[in-house]
Every structure is written in structure tokens, then in C-alpha cells.
Amino acid sequence: MLRYAFRRVLSALPIAFIAVTVCFFILRLAPGGPFDTGRPLPPNVLANVRAYYNLDQPLFTQYLLYIGGVLRGNLGPSMAFYDFNVSQLLAIGLPFTLTLGFSAFVIATFVGVLAGMVSAVYQNKWPDYVLVLAVMIGLVVPNFLMGALLQLWFGVYLRWLPAGGWVTGSITHLVLPVTVLAWPHAARISRLMRGSMIEVLGTNYVRTAKSKGLGSRLVLARHAIKPAMIPVVSYLGPGLSYLLTGSIVVEQIFGLPGIGRYFISAALNRDYGLVLGTTLFYMLLILVLNLIVDLVYAWLDPKVRYS
């Protein structure tokens, strides 16, 4: 298992290298630059600023300098947030983004698995119809629209929850963003769990367990839940990465101080270093989460072996 994990890490390095290279040249070759917005700088000041950020060097030289810095763990300075480098900005926004993403992940996974099990047990009955309708709302309505609607209803009209912003230590400011993030994730897990559980409940060994007189709860706990979770676990890695990267829009809507807010600001201001650093971070995070899912998948299904 450890050797498999080590090989997966080694195989992911070329992918990371290619992705960083493509992002670097797309950003550099696109029209405009980080100092073209706002009031034009005097020519001598602009020349000094470009020299400071190595933008006066040939494009390939800039690329080699950036790759060399990344290999040393230096993601470079930010061109929009002065007096900060990219690593510092990621360190500032990372705790909040992880708190938001993992909170939505835990809640959505629990709700989705429970809703899928109930829908499968009560297939084609009123609990199944109600839960299917609820999850379809989460899938159909995009998160930016759902966020605006929840802000309007619960933050402006009812004034039950804050409509945006962040106060350190305040859980109420997380309720609406976590709900917006968790709802579609819970909907996808619920659909996967429902279909998988219906299939498992129709297998021979489950029918045999029922014929021996075991109660429905015991059959679910001992024989049905673990194999039914296999498709769900396969989705959890990409799902968690979706929550962490999908928080970009949610953080911007609710004015939250996470990595997503920095990323959008960097994209609008053409902050090369911060855009590349955020892209690299999210890419490595997705690769690590997929590796963890593969390992958990092997634990759930004894037939899976990685050679």
C-alpha cells in the first residue's frame, strides 16, 4: 500500500509540472499585465517595477526563474497585495478555506448518506419522493444563485443570520456559506447512496440475512452499509476538492477572507504569482485527496488490490 502511494505521488509530479507550465504561459501571453490597470505609471517607474518582478526578462527566462523558485518552495511575491508574498497570502486564507470546506464536507456527507439510505429503504414511497425533491433543488440551483437567495431571505428579510462578512469566532457567519456549499454535495452523495443501496439490498447475501430472521436495522448495519458506501467513497475525494475549490465563488459572494477571495482578486488584477500559486495549491490538494480515496477504497472493498 505504501509503495503504491509512493508511486502515485511520483506519477503526479509530471502532471503538476505540465499544469504549472501551461498556466504560466497562458497568463504571460494573454493581453495586458498587472500594471496596466488604473493610472498609467511614469515610464521610468514602470521600468523599475518590471525589473523588480523580472518582467523585463525574456519569457523563457521568467519561466525558468519561476520554476526554480517553486522547487525551492518560493512561490514568489504578490503583484497586487504589496508587502506580501504568495506563500503568506495562502497561509492567511488557508485556515478559513479549510474550515469552510471541511465543515460543508462533513455535514453534506452525513446528510447525503442518511438521505440516500432512507430513500433506498422507502423506495417509491413518500419519504423517497420528498428527499429526491430536496436533493434536486440542490443540484438544479447554482451556488451563486442559492447564495444570493439565502442572503435575501435569511439575512435581509428575516434577519435571522448575517448576510455576509466575517467576525472572528462567530459561527453564525458560517451558516449560510456552509449551507450553500453543502447542499449540492449532499444531493450528489444522496443520489449515489440511494442507487448503490438499492442494488445492495437486492443481492443474494442480503436476502439470505433477512431469511435468517435478522432485523432490518441489523441487516443494514452489518451487511448493506459498507458495500453501498464504495461508490460514495469514490466520489468523496473529488467532492471534497470541489468543495474547497468551489468555495471561491461562495467566499466572494459572502465576503469571506479565504483563498478564493484572493484568487478572484488576483485574476482581476493579473497578479501572476498569486494566480499560479493558488492553482498549484489546489492542483496538489486534488491529487492528494484522490490518493486518499484510493487507499480508503481498498480498505472498503477487499477485492481491490494495488500491485
Score class of each variant (00 low, 15 high):
Asp301Asn: 13
Ser103Trp: 01
Leu139Pro: 02
Phe105Ile: 00
Phe102Trp: 06
Val288Ile: 14
Leu256Gln: 02
Ser196Tyr: 04
Val293Met: 06
Ala182Asp: 00
Met146Leu: 15
Arg188Val: 13
Val135Glu: 08
Ile286Asn: 15
Ser234Thr: 14
Pro231Thr: 11
Val250Ala: 02
Ser87Met: 11
Leu98Lys: 00
Arg159Val: 04
Leu89Thr: 03
Arg305Tyr: 12
Leu240Arg: 00
Ser216Val: 09
Gly215Asp: 10
Ala47Asn: 07
Ser119His: 09
Ile189Met: 00
Gly165Ser: 05
Leu41His: 04
Asn290Ile: 14
Leu300Ala: 02
Pro302Leu: 05
Thr61Arg: 11
Glu199Phe: 01
Phe60Ser: 10
Asn44Phe: 03
Ala266Asp: 01
Phe154Tyr: 03
Leu13Ala: 13
Val20Cys: 10
Ala221Gly: 12
Val180Met: 01
Phe24Cys: 04
Val200Phe: 05
Pro257Tyr: 01
Asp36Leu: 15
Thr179Ser: 15
Leu181Trp: 09
Arg191Pro: 00
Gly68Met: 11
Leu192Val: 09
Leu280Glu: 04
Pro14Tyr: 11
Arg7Phe: 15
Ile107Met: 08
Gln123Phe: 13
Pro177Trp: 06
Leu174Gly: 04
Asn204Arg: 06
Trp153Asp: 13
Gly93Asn: 02
Gly147Ile: 07
Tyr297Phe: 13
Ala134Val: 14
Gln57Leu: 11
Ala115Arg: 04
Gly202Trp: 02
Phe96Thr: 01
Val296Ser: 05
Lys125Phe: 15
Ser119Asp: 10
Arg72Tyr: 12
His173Ser: 02
Leu244Arg: 10
Val113Arg: 02
Val20Trp: 02
Val233Leu: 14
Ser307Cys: 00
Asn74Lys: 01
Thr109Ser: 13
Arg159Asp: 14
Tyr282Val: 03
Tyr297Val: 05
Gly76Phe: 05
Asn124Glu: 14
Ile107Tyr: 05
Met1Pro: 04
Leu114Ala: 14
Leu236Ile: 12
Leu29Pro: 09
Ile171Pro: 02
Val70Asp: 07
Ala209His: 09
Thr245Gly: 13
Asp301Met: 05
Leu90Gln: 00
Ile18Lys: 11
Phe25Glu: 11
Arg207Asp: 00
Leu220Cys: 08
Asn74His: 04
Arg39Gly: 00
Ile171Phe: 05
Ser78Ala: 13
Gly260Ala: 03
Tyr242Thr: 04
Gly237His: 06
Leu256Arg: 03
Tyr205Asp: 00
Pro177Ile: 08
Ile286Thr: 13
Val175Phe: 09
Phe6Ala: 15
Ser241Asp: 03
Asp83Ile: 12
Met136Asn: 06
Val106His: 00
His185Leu: 01
Leu287Ala: 15
Ser211Trp: 00
Thr97Gly: 03
Ile248Glu: 07
Leu27Gln: 08
Val250Ser: 02
Ile137Thr: 06
Tyr157Cys: 03
Leu133Phe: 13
Pro43His: 10
Tyr129Gln: 14
Val219Ile: 12
Gln62Cys: 13
Ala104Tyr: 01
Tyr242Gln: 05
Met193Ile: 03
Val118Asn: 04
Phe110Val: 15
Gly93Tyr: 01
Gln62Thr: 11
Leu75Ala: 02
Lys212Asp: 00
Gly73Lys: 05
Trp160Ser: 08
Phe144Ser: 07
Leu181Val: 11
Arg222Pro: 06
Trp166Thr: 03
Val250Thr: 08
